[in-house]
């Protein structure tokens, strides 16, 4: 079983992305292969420089870097979303693979979940 979780919402504005991350971590806890794909506004999760302390939140980028320690297999960034937000590979946290969102990509996963 391989699971792809799609995050298409920007960080900090609501809890949906956190819930998606929590789901991914729960799967990883039971050694289920799980990947996260960031598309649309969700791409902003992957920015290296984030300082949410002034808004009393924890850095999602730091949380994500922790996620790979727990066995989340891939962090995937959609190329179009990067372009839209003016981001390059050098702006992203380590360990992110750049990919292209399409039907072929989704076909690699037995389960696709959008939070």
């Amino acid at each position: 079983m391989s699971v792809l979780i799609i995050i298409d919402q920007a960080p900090y504005g609501n809890w949906s992305g956190r819930e998606a991350l929590d789901m991914a971590l729960s799967l990883a806890a039971f050694d289920q292969p799980v990947s996260l794909l960031f598309v649309g506004a969700g791409i902003n999760w992957l920015r290296k420089q984030q300082n949410p302390a002034p808004i009393q939140q924890k850095g999602v980028n730091r949380n994500l870097a922790g996620a790979t320690v727990f066995g989340i297999e891939e962090l995937l960034a959609d190329q179009d979303a990067l372009q839209r937000y003016g981001l390059g590979a050098e702006d992203l946290l380590d360990g992110v693979a750049i990919t292209h969102y399409d039907q072929d990509l989704l076909a690699n996963y037995l389960h696709v979940v959008c939070q």
Binding site: D8, G40, A41, D102, Q103
Partner: peptide
């Protein structure tokens, strides 16, 4: 909703 487009692109 942005996910509307995301879905349509995924329909094979």
């Amino acid at each position: 909703h942005p996910r509307f487009r995301l879905c349509l692109e995924a329909v094979g």
